[in-house]
Design a binder for these strands. Structure first.
Length: 301
DNA sequence: TTAAATTCCTGTAAGC
DNA sequence: TGCTTACAGGAATTTA
């Protein structure tokens, strides 16, 4: 499922292809995927808007449009955002389609028309179909939002998010202080988007294993030194996963529909019962914060 | 106020 | 083989 590294991969892939493009038309085969505003307003409002930036915040994909509008995409568990040629067959569970203006590297519109009139359009300029950004989500846990940044925050449509764990400004002591005030399991805090943005079940388990910390430990009981280790492990887990283009467990695919590479390198997630790579003892699975949680009873304390 | 439980949703895999 | 059932989980919402 898409967590910080997967969303970061998609955003980095999409950015050069979307920035500067204009959304010609939006269609919503499944309108309720849009949570704000009303679907008709959403469709009307994005049409004709230029995409000025593509960013990530936590697990959210943010697209800055004209007129201070912000198009927000959350992939939930099975959401996929793909860039395809407009004539590509529409896959099942496609809930939103954004048609983009043509490729600026080949003459389009008026320029193409002029060339054709003069009978001099080079054959090396194929009639490139316009492209579409498509949102597909079989389990429909994802959502789309539109509004000004200010209005989205004010209406509480966008949750308040904690610091970005891979931001160099995120200091070990900041993690220590936020853990200190939480009387719940370490796992629950790592999954809390208001505490740290972007961490989900995969990288919570991976980073606690790297830090040699039991997921069911009380967060408030962690020493400064342990918090420091967790801080480093979190960054390592996330940055390594970004380098490997994310983990394709379940249905995750990048913007081109390709698999990531990190799933083959996971230390504990999805490996319950298999031997720990460090000590060989079978990894244990428990349920914490409503999530399956895998760890090593010997290596993690 | 905070933490835990419940809910949404469908593809997949296990079990009969 | 074919059906039923349990399970996966992000986060909003509800309950404790």
């Amino acid at each position: 499922m898409p967590e910080l590294p997967e969303v970061e991969t998609i955003v980095a892939d999409l950015r050069p292809h979307l920035v500067g493009r204009t959304i010609v038309r939006a269609e919503l085969p499944f309108p309720t995927i849009v949570r704000h505003p009303e679907p008709e307003v959403f469709v009307d409002s994005v049409a004709g808007m230029r995409i000025n930036a593509v960013r990530r915040r936590g697990k959210f994909i943010l697209m800055d449009l004209d007129h201070d509008l912000l198009l927000v995409v959350h992939l939930g568990m099975t959401g996929q955002l793909r860039l395809v040629d407009a004539d590509a067959p529409i896959e099942k569970h496609t809930h939103a389609i954004f048609t983009l203006d043509g490729d600026s590297s080949s003459p389009s519109g008026g320029a193409r028309h002029l060339l054709r009139q003069r009978g001099s359009e080079p054959s090396s300029f194929p009639a490139r179909p316009s492209r579409q950004l498509r949102y597909r989500d079989p389990r429909r846990f994802g959502r789309l939002l539109l509004g000004t940044q200010e209005s989205l925050l004010a209406s509480k449509k966008m949750p308040r998010l904690g610091p970005e764990p891979i931001d160099p400004a995120f200091a070990p002591d900041e993690l220590y202080r936020s853990l200190r005030k939480r009387h719940t399991s370490l796992k629950a805090v790592l999954l809390d988007q208001g505490a740290i943005a972007g961490v989900g079940n995969i990288y919570a388990d991976e980073s606690m294993h790297r830090a040699r910390l039991r997921p069911d430990r009380m967060a408030a009981g962690l020493s400064r030194k342990s918090a420091q280790r967790l801080h480093e492990s979190l960054r390592d887990s996330l940055l390594t996963a970004i380098r490997n283009r994310g983990s394709s467990v379940d249905t995750y695919r990048d913007a081109w529909g390709e698999l990531g590479g990190q799933q083959e390198k996971l230390l504990v997630y999805g490996r319950a019962g298999e031997p720990c790579f460090t000590c060989g003892r079978p990894l244990k699975m428990i349920r914490l914060a409503g999530r399956s949680t895998v760890f090593c009873t010997k290596c993690q304390h």
